[in-house]
Nucleic acid binder design. Structure first.
Lengths: 205, 205
DNA sequence: CAAATATACTAAACACTGTTTAGTAAGCAA
DNA sequence: TTGCTTACTAAACAGTGTTTAGTATATTTG
């Protein structure tokens, strides 16, 4: 009998309905100002219904966190068409900055907020999405090493170092701490710093 | 008449009483779980009283943010005794990491949370504390340039680049995103990355 | 087909949150 | 002693995430 299957589909539809409304509100007004009641209103269901499909607000944020990674990987993945590994790494950096600036709330969810990590912790799962993205960075760095760009053979540490810089740069900008530059010169400052950093790793990583 | 002065003193005492209770609770249970009511209970006053001394919760957080910077500058300032500027920069890095790990909630307040910046924005003031700390970093870098360690003459960009790396590294750790290492090897990983980064800037900044 | 059961949903409550308002009691000045 | 100011608070306002108990509807069973 197909009833069970239909119910399963309907359940999945409902999860998507909730998630889409959540994403919309979340991106429109930010995490802090989006309430379960607001999401419930948007889909014209009671707040309690949401708890039949998602354990709590953290789980809802975690689901958004997951497709934020999907989106980022799609955008970063485009660099695969670049043959030279160092040029590919550079473009990856540009795309990373672009993604962070264009999706500040998602970036927060992916790399700054504790909520999604707590869901992961109490499920006793690993941070798959993050590790996959980190793995992609390691691949590109490995290619750079193999092409003779970098001499350092510890890919893990090289990747962590590069990611730390990138994450720090965009975090400082997104969290409004780049006040050593005037508002309209912050992007330019980031650009200059990025050029400096990339020339540094090219010369001596 | 000394009555006005006494009242002024009492007002200042009350502000400190509130702030000390706020700091204690905040460090004990974190920002999110500390409520105005909790602070009011701790000092045995009504919640409304707190609003006679601080405009809102953001202002309370901003006050803590200020003495978090005071504390950090005290700890970082110790490196002034190191003569060699590059060794001084290295030690500053160590101290920065140490401070972040030992005071994760304060670090959040200083460099990640938006609340203190919002208070600053609506007061139309600049981020004095942050710029002062950044200025100290620039001083040390200038010394490194003058001593012939670094060839790059754009101190502002060099400082931003170094700070970005440091901030990224500690943020990734503090926000539990360093899952490429097992829990007990994350500090070691940071150490290795720090060594790599410092060797990179020594060779080619 | 009717009765029993399972499912989907919600109203209302619980226990909180930051913040404001209106009112009280004490301290001080005239 | 009267009038005014200051310090404080009880209670309310408008929200929050989450849970409970109960109601219809849909499905399965006798």
């Amino acid at each position: 009998m197909g009833i069970a299957e239909r119910k399963e589909r309907e359940k999945e539809d409902m999860r998507k309905l909730i998630l889409n409304a959540a994403r919309k509100l979340f991106l429109e007004q930010g995490y802090e100002k989006t309430s379960i009641r607001g999401i419930a209103d948007a889909i014209e269901y009671s707040p309690a219904t949401i708890y039949l499909y998602y354990k709590d607000k953290n789980e809802l944020l975690f689901a958004l966190h997951e497709d934020a990674f999907l989106k980022m990987m799609q955008e970063l993945g485009q660099v695969r068409s670049i043959h030279d590994p160092f040029a590919r790494l550079l473009e990856m950096g540009h795309q990373y900055i672009k993604y962070a600036i264009e999706n500040p709330e998602l970036y927060d969810l992916m790399f700054i907020m504790k909520a999604p990590m707590e869901t992961l912790a109490c499920r006793e799962e690993i941070w798959e999405d993050g590790l996959k993205a980190f793995g992609f960075l390691k691949e590109v760095i490995t290619d750079c090493v193999n092409a003779g760009y970098f001499k350092n053979k510890n890919i893990e540490i090289s990747a962590l170092t590069i990611w730390s810089y990138m994450h720090g740069l965009v975090s400082i900008y997104l969290k409004n701490r780049m006040t050593m530059f005037q508002d309209d010169q912050q992007l330019q400052g980031m650009q200059q710093s990025f050029i400096l950093f990339t020339s540094m790793i090219r010369d001596s990583l």
